[in-house]
Computed example of a mutant assay.
Amino acid sequence: MASRRSFLAGLLATGLAPQASWADLGCPSFLAAGQQNDGSFVLAGLTSRGDILFRCPLPDRGHAASAHPKRPEIVAFARRPGRFAQVINCRDGAPLARLDPPNGHHFYGHGCFSSDGTRLYTTENDYVNSRGVVGIWDTTNGYQRIGSFSSGGIGPHDILLRNDAPGLVIANGGIQTHPRSGRAKLNLKTMRPNLSYTDLNGSVQDQVVLPLDLHQNSIRHLAIHTSGTLAFAMQWQGEPGAGVPITGLHLSGTAPQLLAEDDPRVRNLQGYGGSIGFSADGKQVAVTSPRGGVAQIMDAVSGDLLYEHQLPDVCGLATGESGFVVTTGKGQVAALSGPDISPLSQSDMRWDNHLIPLTRGEL
């Protein structure tokens, strides 16, 4: 009887080999960028228990990543104002392509695939014209850029595929920047962040702007539940210690709901929402703050702040089996369930901003 290796070799020769999938890599549950002890940067695949399945080299510090819905490929995005987005074959860590934005643009650290995986959408700063842009890339042709459209605002950061209708939702943080000024914020007095809902061609279908007294609350990060409800995390750019709400919920066509806005513990976030996520049942929303060293869990119906966990340099956050999973810059992966915190793993990694979940469709 032919060996499995020779059988697969025969399939490859005839072009009938099964397409590689995430299962070939042990079905990772999460992706996370980080820095190793030797100073090098990687993007790692993690199990649900926080164990590292693979590490893929990055050319510089990463921010977030997006997983192809069918193939074991990831696109790792540079931290703003970086200009690289690295497409990586997770089977061997080999770079498949490097995405470079057009002259006068830089990436903003996030992107998302279309549901069939044929398109990639990237948030970008057209700093020459001080406008936000979404780039469109054809993944079936070597990730060639095939177009772009306005993000509907300034400083687009996070972007997600909608669950409730065909299209995208974009977090326009409202902050004008320019590479020659580093990470300086150039328009804090006039900034107006928004949530923009567009179709896949960029036509704006709905847009949410915060009240004027919160115009300096930059909308940065997003999570979406299967119901279509969107959670958003903000970063306050006004006077320190203002105690403004840092998290909100929105369903297209309705008014946004700000969470825990009267709870004094909101100040413990120090005006900074690092990552946001839903519990699996959608009844709770969590937000992290590396500045405050806390993760807070809120009721998604009442908006009440239910639990607060102290975790130094916590930022990465994703849905867990019975609550949430978080990562820290100290190499810790932990599970949060109600008032309980359970350490899952400890490594030499300095985990960066985000913990990216892989859905069942991607596995």
Rank of each mutant, 00 (worst) to 15 (best):
D100A: 12
F107R: 01
N37I: 14
P245S: 10
G10E: 12
F113Y: 15
T118L: 12
T190E: 14
A223T: 07
G135E: 03
T288E: 01
G292L: 03
T123Q: 05
C315K: 02
V294E: 01
I74C: 11
R98D: 12
T198R: 08
P156S: 13
I297E: 00
E124A: 06
D60K: 13
G228F: 10
H157S: 05
R145Q: 13
F232V: 06
P264F: 08
E321W: 06
G174W: 06
N125R: 06
L31E: 02
G243F: 04
F278C: 10
Q235L: 03
I341Q: 15
V244N: 12
G253E: 04
I175C: 03
T177L: 12
N103C: 13
A78Y: 09
R145V: 07
S203K: 15
F41E: 02
R5N: 02
F232R: 00
Q270N: 12
G111S: 10
I356T: 12
Q235H: 04
P57V: 08
L46A: 03
A165N: 07
G241W: 03
P343I: 08
G273A: 03
Q19D: 15
Q19E: 15
Q257E: 11
A223S: 13
A260P: 07
L258P: 09
R350M: 12
Y143V: 10
